[in-house]
């Protein structure tokens, strides 16, 4: 990972279909891009695969899996894992990631990042699955913290403690999603400072930021509560930038990705968001240098 990791020192954007042709034709001031792995599980002759191979010539890639279902109690889908392996061997991404969540049970795929109870049993399931994935893929996985809407019973661990355990037991890294922490903290009344204090920040290999929306939950015509929804459909709000700033000050400079999957804006809007993230990384870098000199 050493050489590859060095090119992941700056902010980037997720590559979305509406921008594919535009990015293939121009050379952005970015060193890497993130793709959703499942969008490229295609025959190499398919036009979209040709496009990503062309783009790969100019950028490093982070491949973000959304369907491996690391939290499935009955283990991983070997065919899916084999598909990912072929993709990664072909694209040679510098970073690969999956979610601390599940989406598959009894052969059905629910296309969402469903929550796991942070129990001792779930810890074993997740670690076994990560071990298998890392062994089959021959690469280190980064695992992403989920956005949560439900406080599940039967938890033996807090989320950062659970993340620490999987890092220690499997050697995986973390993809830390700042927006997900912000959303979960609001919805489950978590203390972000205490959370970050417990988080194994040295294991973070990539950071996500994104926008979220507010949703009023209504009962008998009355709004009973307002939850935040991690919908990746708008600019990153100031509170999330502020939380990113805090995380960078603790963890040091890390590659930061702006996620925007719904209501995808024109490319320049997305690049402006990445530029904001870059300014925070730069500020964190220069602070680090100052304290190093001092």
């Amino acid at each position: 990972m050493g050489t590859a990791a060095r090119s992941f020192s700056c902010a980037a954007i997720g590559l979305r279909n509406p921008h594919l042709a535009q990015i293939r034709e121009c050379r952005l001031e970015l060193s890497w891009l993130e793709i959703h792995s499942e969008n490229y599980l295609l025959p190499p002759v398919a036009p979209r695969f040709k496009a990503i191979e062309k783009i790969r010539e100019n950028y490093d890639l982070s491949c973000h899996g959304v369907g491996l279902s690391i939290g499935s109690a009955r283990g991983l889908d070997r065919d899916h894992l084999a598909g990912l392996k072929a993709l990664y061997n072909r694209l040679e991404p510098g970073l690969i990631s999956e979610h601390l969540a599940w989406s598959v049970v009894d052969g059905h795929y629910y296309n969402d990042l469903l929550p796991l109870p942070y129990s001792t049993e779930a810890l074993k399931v997740v670690c076994d699955n990560i071990d298998l994935a890392q062994e089959m893929l021959g690469r280190r996985l980064l695992i992403e913290n989920p956005a949560r809407y439900l406080l599940l019973p039967d938890g033996d661990f807090s989320e950062p403690a659970f993340l620490r355990e999987i890092v220690v037991r499997t050697g995986c890294g973390l993809l830390f999603d700042v927006n997900n922490l912000f959303v979960s903290a609001h919805n489950l009344h978590l203390d972000t400072a205490a959370y970050l204090w417990d988080l194994p920040v040295d294991a973070i290999g990539e950071i996500h930021v994104a926008g979220h929306s507010r949703q009023d939950l209504v009962e008998e015509g009355n709004v009973v509560e307002t939850v935040l929804i991690d919908d990746h459909g708008s600019i990153v709000p100031p509170d999330v930038w502020a939380l990113l700033d805090v995380l960078l000050s603790i963890a040091g400079p890390k590659p930061v990705l702006v996620e925007w999957d719904n209501n995808v804006p024109p490319l320049d809007v997305l690049l402006a968001e990445a530029a904001k993230a870059q300014r925070l990384i730069d500020a964190c870098q220069s602070q680090g240098e100052v304290s190093h000199v001092a």
């Binding site: 296309n111 439900l150 406080l151 939950l217």
Partner: peptide
């Protein structure tokens, strides 16, 4: 059963799965 106290929050996942498909 374990989530009956929190049906509103559970519905967020149900709505999200449905909307994405």
């Amino acid at each position: 059963v374990a989530l009956r106290d929190n049906q509103r929050r559970f519905a967020i996942y149900r709505d999200s799965v449905s909307a994405s498909l």
